[in-house]
Each structure stands twice: as structure tokens, then as C-alpha cells.
Simulated scan of single mutants.
Amino acid sequence: MSETSQPTRPSTRLRRAEVSVLITATVISVLVGLLVLAAWRNDYLISTDKGSATAEVLSAGRLRSAVMYVTPDGETHNPKVGVLYPTNLTAGERIRVEYRRSDPDLVRVEGRDVRVAIMPALSVLVVVWGVALSALWLLSRMGRRRSQ
């Protein structure tokens, strides 16, 4: 190896690390944006063809809660993906839900919509970009120290 190629090798690694940090933060940001758009789309679909019912919470979790409800036509529904916006539910609780009549498996807790997802999404973005900008700052400092 020549002597001139050695000093550029660490700077190339630093540049690659910086690009990797930016790409990772951007990809996560896009995914968070897509999640919020998907929630908005689901809300729109429910709102354009809305039915409502009383449901029983079968199991409750922070990210997924299973419910069972009966539509006016007498069919019992237990959506495989659970109910949208499931926070603060408890097993055995009876709640009001809104569902899409043409697709009863698309169901949300009554009174909740995409606004419930905005604050968690924004907090994820703040943390991701806080970590990314801190990492970029550290990488920049390392690059300046090596160039001196």
C-alpha cells in the first residue's frame, strides 16, 4: 500500500459511517410516516362506510388488543389483527367500536383516530434524529481530529 492511501482510509470509513447514519435515520423516518399514513387511510376507510357496535375486549396489550363484536346482521367478528388504537383497554371490558361495514375486520375503538398515533410517531422521530445528529456530530469531531 502506498503512504498516500492510508490517511484517506479512515476518512472514507468516517464518511461511510456518516452516510449510514443518515440513511438509517431517513429510512426510520419514512417508515414512521408510512405508519401514520396507514392509520389515516384506515380511519378514512372506516369513516366512509361506518358501522358501530359494542365489543368485548378478549385480550389487551399495549400494541394489540383482541375484541369480539356482533354486527347488526348477527355475525360475530373477531378481527385477527385486533382493534386499532388499543391503548388502555382491559380484558373483559365492554367498549364501543367503529368498523367498516364492507370489511368488519377493520375496526377501531370509538372516539379514537389517527391523532392517537401522531404523538408517538413524533416522539420516535425526535429520538431517532437526536441520536442520528449526536452520532454525526461525534463522527465529525473524529474526522477533524484525524485531519489535524
Rank of each mutant, 00 (worst) to 15 (best):
R112G: 00
Q6I: 14
R13D: 02
R41Q: 14
G92K: 02
Y44M: 12
Q6Y: 12
V127I: 10
L22M: 12
P79M: 06
L14N: 13
P10T: 10
E93I: 00
R15S: 12
L37R: 14
T48V: 13
I95N: 03
M119Q: 00
R108I: 05
G82W: 01
G74V: 05
W40R: 12
E75T: 12
W129M: 02
S140E: 10
L37K: 13
D105M: 08
A132L: 05
G82T: 05
T26R: 05
N78I: 10
R96M: 09
L14T: 11
V109D: 01
S5I: 13
A135W: 03
V19G: 03
L35H: 14
R101S: 09
N78M: 11
V21L: 09
E98T: 12
K80C: 10
R9Q: 14
E18A: 11
P10L: 11
A117P: 00
T26L: 14
T48P: 01
T54L: 02
V70G: 01
W129E: 02
P120Y: 04
R15N: 09
M142I: 08
I23D: 04
L84G: 03
E93A: 05
E110N: 05
G143W: 09
L34N: 14
E56Y: 00
G130L: 07
K50W: 04
G143A: 14
L106C: 08
S59H: 00
R64C: 01
A117S: 10
A55Y: 00
G92E: 03
R62V: 07
V124I: 07
G143N: 15
W137Y: 15
G33V: 11
S2M: 09
L31R: 03
L63M: 10
G111V: 02
M119D: 03
V127Y: 02
R115S: 07
S59A: 09
E98Y: 08
S47I: 05
V67G: 01
T48R: 15
G92T: 05
L133R: 10
W137C: 14
W40F: 12
S59P: 01
S2V: 06
W129C: 01
S11G: 05
E18T: 09
L22N: 04
S5V: 13
V107K: 05
T71Y: 06
L106W: 08
S134Q: 09
T24N: 07
L14K: 07
R100L: 06
A66H: 03
V36I: 15
T76N: 11
T90M: 10
L133T: 14
W137G: 10
V32L: 14
S5C: 08
Y44I: 06
E18R: 13
S65L: 06
N78T: 14
S11F: 15
T71M: 08
R96F: 04
S52P: 00
D103A: 15
E98N: 10
A132K: 04
S20G: 15
R144E: 13
S123I: 02
P7K: 09
G92L: 04
E110A: 11
T54S: 04
R15M: 10
R13N: 08
